[in-house]
Simulated assay, not measured.
Amino acid sequence: MAENESGQDPFDVDERIDHIGDRLRDIERKEQADASGKSGTVDKNYRLGNRVLADLLGGLAGGLLFGWLFDRWLGTSPWLLITFLILGIFVAFRNIIRASNAYSAGLERQQPPQDTHKD
């Protein structure tokens, strides 16, 4: 294949193709940044929701189970069942409040401080 007199490749390079390639790289970078940022938040929210559900169900089930067992063992039906159920609910809500406070404190640390000073 012979080169032309100017020493350049005989095929003209279309600048539009280079521009499209640059735009594709920019779009891919933005998508990767969005995916990495949002997926982390979604995973944290999903884990927090699962933890809240597990705490609530565990508190209720544990209170019912232990109350029923102690009632049958001691013959105090239904007083220990009611007592342990209330105790289980209390413990579940305490755990949920702790988890949500820890989550919101983590969110506050992630956000940059905002300048509230207006001129």
Rank of each mutant, 00 (worst) to 15 (best):
N95M: 10
S77Y: 12
W79S: 07
W73G: 12
E5T: 05
K38R: 08
D71V: 09
D22M: 05
V52S: 12
N95S: 15
A2N: 13
R29M: 08
I86P: 00
Y103L: 03
I17R: 05
P112Q: 15
L64D: 01
K118F: 03
L81E: 08
Y46T: 15
W68V: 15
I20N: 05
L53S: 13
D22G: 04
G58S: 04
Y103Q: 12
A33D: 09
R72I: 14
L65D: 02
L56K: 04
E28F: 04
F70E: 13
L85K: 02
G67Q: 08
G63Q: 03
T116C: 02
Q110R: 11
D18V: 03
Q110K: 10
D119M: 01
L60K: 01
G88Q: 07
R72W: 06
G63R: 08
D9K: 01
V91T: 13
L87G: 12
N101C: 05
A102G: 07
G40V: 01
R98S: 15
P78H: 04
L107F: 03
E5F: 02
A33Y: 02
D34W: 08
N95P: 02
L85S: 11
I86N: 00
Q111L: 10
I89Q: 10
L53M: 12
Q32M: 06
P78W: 04
K30I: 10
L24A: 06
R98C: 09
R16T: 06
E28K: 14
R47E: 09
G58N: 03
G37C: 01
S36P: 00
L48D: 11
E108A: 15
Q32P: 00
N101H: 10
T41W: 12
R23T: 11
E31V: 14
S77N: 12
L48Q: 14
A54E: 03
F90Q: 11
P112D: 14
E31L: 15
L80V: 06
Q8P: 00
G7L: 06
N50K: 13
P78G: 04
G49W: 07
D43V: 00
L87F: 11
A61P: 01
L65C: 10
R72G: 15
D43S: 03
L53G: 06
I17K: 03
R98W: 09
F70P: 02
I97N: 11
D119E: 06
